[in-house]
Design a protein around this nucleic acid. Sequence first.
RNA 1: GGAGAGUUGGCUGAGUGGCUUAAAGCGGCACCCUGCUAAGGUGUUUUACUCGUAAGGGUAACGAGAGUUCGAAUCUCUCACUCUCCGCCA
Length: 423
Amino acid sequence: MLQVPYIRENKELIIERLKVRNIDATETINKIIEADKNRRETQQKLDEVLASSNAKAKEIGMLFKEGKGAEANALKQETSQLKEESKSLQEAFNTYAEELKQLLYLVPNVPHESVPEGKSDEDNVEIFAEGEFPKLHEGALPHWELTSKYDLIDFELGVKITGAGFPVYTGKGARIQRALVNFFLDNSTAMGYREVQPPLLINEASGFGTGQLPDKEGQMYHATTDDLYLIPTAEVPVTNIYRNTIVKTEDLPIKNTAYSQCFRREAGSYGSDVRGLNRLHQFDKVEVVQITHPSESMNALDEMVEYVKTLLQKLELPYRIVRLCGGDLGFTSVLTYDFEVYSAAQDKWLEVSSISNFETFQANRLKCRYKDENGKPQLVHTLNGSALAFPRILAALLENNQTPEGIKIPKELAKYTGFDIIK
RNA sequence: GGAGAGUUGGCUGAGUGGCUUAAAGCGGCACCCUGCUAAGGUGUUUUACUCGUAAGGGUAACGAGAGUUCGAAUCUCUCACUCUCCGCCA
């Protein structure tokens, strides 16, 4: 969420920039400024009343000590009015503070100046592309047929055990999954990320910290008996490591990586793009998360983009990078780059990574700070990126590398699978 | 799941109604002293909000919330969490 002093001082700029998201925040921003003003004025009054009430209480204590019980009791009378006053001021203050908080939850992050205008993913801007499109042989198949032809994934079995979107990986399919875990983690740790294995269930406070709650509640699986949520991404537990902390400035940037399974209800998704591995309720992903000094976050974003490029190069997959337009940009993000791989048999671009800079938006909720050169606590910047999401990578690997003899495994990955062709 | 004990500042740990934002020790930082891989001395050491150009001031916070009281770390209630033992178990 945005910081109130920032809103106060940059009202026009914020409203202008939020138009890139196709929203008019004028009314909400005005309400925020009003609620903030009321809150501060009420606090001043409240503080005054409490101060005089404190002073009186001290005086009463002194009088009792000196044995002047009568005077003390007289003074007690006076305090009752102050008490009433402070009570109603406290209530008013709480109301304004709550109102302010609720309003702040409504405002998304302010897009970076480089974010293009646009309504949907069709308006995202391609900024980079690399890799050759494969030439498929006659009779090439989409991955959901390849997986059954070579006994790699059993979608039907998943439906039996759980439901649609929970595939069962078998044999070499399961082995590739395991290979991808190690391949991705080895690469990210080599880039200086610390490996973390986080919980897959999170509490409500963690959901708030990274911005999944209160809004996107319906997208997470909720274990109601214990009021815990299954993580939609490792970003949530890994970033929440730093909730309510003041990190050492010399430790920045803090770089963590985690492999986890991710759970998404995908409520409201439909259509042909949910076929096979294209959209699942449970999937695997390696995530990279950075906590940086504010002056370094854009460099860190570039570094993450460069890093993900190397992964796709090693996997020999044709890919492109798009800059998300305002309409497609996530609520908490300032700037996001998506990586899409080309999956040949479907003739489709599949999103396999999303790399975002949240600047102070998450940090403000998380209360994650560092100390500046004056020793004053300041909010850090947080970033994260997928490196990478497995299912669509697998889909593209299978589709692009199919030959009449079998499916070939790229050299770098074959080091991890232990085989270089699936027959 | 059953029984019991706890939750205080970066850490250890005192504090059972006012002079306690909090003793003491450790750690950290600054300065001083000292002719040397050390020791000693003095001071300092939380955060949020808020007023102020600043210096500085006000308010709040001792797990969370509510209550009693002129006044709560301290008393009452509710909740959360941690630990120990027993049971169960990967």
